[in-house]
Design a protein around this nucleic acid. Sequence first.
RNA 1: GGCCCGUUCGUCUAUCGGUUAGGACACCAGGUUUUCAACCUGGUAAGAGGGGUUCGACUCCCCUACGGGCUGCCA
Length: 466
Amino acid sequence: MSDKIVTRFAPSPTGYLHIGGARTALFNWLFARGHGGTFLLRIEDTDRERSTPAATAAILKGLDWLGLDYDGEVVSQFEGRHRHAEVALDMLARGAAYKCFSTQTEIEAFREAARAEGRSTLFQSPWRDADPATHPDAPYVIRLKAPREGATVIEDKVQGTVTFKNDQLDDMVCLRSDGTPTYMLAVVVDDHDMGVTHVIRGDDHLTNAARQVQVYTAMGWDVPIFAHIPLIHGPDGKKLSKRHGAVGLEEYQAMGYPAAGMRNYLTRLGWSHGDDEFFTDAQAREWFNLEGIGRAPARLDFKKLENLCGQHIAVAEDAALVREIEGYLAAAAKPALSDAQRDGLERAMYCLKERAKTFPELLEKAEFVMTSRPVAPDEKALKALDPVSRGILKTLTPQLQNASWTRDDLEATLNEVAQAHGLGFGKLAGPLRAALAGRSVTPSVFDMMLVLGREETLARLDDQAA
RNA sequence: GGCCCGUUCGUCUAUCGGUUAGGACACCAGGUUUUCAACCUGGUAAGAGGGGUUCGACUCCCCUACGGGCUGCCA
């Protein structure tokens, strides 16, 4: 295949960016970027009732956070409505479509009767072969004159060859009675006009694909390559919904997952490249292919997400992490970092990033560098600061006064002190940790001393010493 | 109801007719340890059920069960 690959993500702006939609976008992006292709974004806003600018904004924000950049301008499907109508009229002119004057109440009655008799509820319009001379002066929709014999076949890259008998497919509405196009028509026209070569989308569109192929055929257009990917399910195997917790991508940012970890997890969910679990964006782009996509729906597993996120945090650059954490704080509506905190965080990052899976966890361990004197110990820290321990801290100060401030020397000094008191190092580390951080969960005491520096360290010890 | 898709350890998956069915996360046990995290060693754990086809099926076919999707002048 020498033609350039063009993919697209086409969400409808009716809410937040669904986690499943985000994965669909990711697959399209990965496929395009990995093959030197183009990744387009089109907002399916033909449903004027439900589409909102806020939802579009949420989608853009979500894609931006996930790091999925699209080529060109965002396409509004609604704005192409005249073009869509033009195609509908074209099909009408060439006899591939027809005007249907059946009212919605008539159709409803037809379906009810069909249901009652156990017949197929697919609507069969009496106007399909009507003589135009008999057309009333009334509102009408334009329906596709779909073939009734034979079958429509989808060659799907994920689902394989899927055959639909044409008598199972109805004459879909292309143009509504108010003259606006339906989604079914609009996708086909837009995908064709935008030169989309690969349609990668949720498998809830698999049946739709058959109807859409009929439009391509009616217009004599090339049918794109389809890849219908399985939907994501909740931990209980049911379709993912709000009762499972987070479904909107923005919630994941607010929970403090790094975007890189999210990308890795989402890529690996339902797609595989041998036994590779943890990979970089570059590797993902290089490895991603349609063949590796599974056919069964996958369930969300937060533990695995966390594990992957932890690995990505560990290998990320310090400055980049600080920036991403600031984004997290904003998304979670938490107080922003002060300049001093930002500096401290970056200095301490080297010892924080290897022990956290999420940003809240990282920030918890960063507390020692985020607070300023006097440090207020929490309950657990207070327990470590009993009178005896406070006494030991006091004897520590002179030793530290003259110690050279390197990890090795601090370690040696502290071990000596512990021995002098006949204690294991653990007994000394507890109070030290409490005095330095006011917390019981922190990086190693040596790292804290190094990050804090001699002066601050001694001051904090002095605050708690007795 | 009709049509379509799916079903390997708890979870994500490898396998593409011949394997002691592999890996990762999670879990359990032990080790290490300065709290947390990490790390080391070992372990538990899977082909939905039933029929075929075949010398041989997780792999191919059929049926059933279960899950999902579509069946809109929603997308």
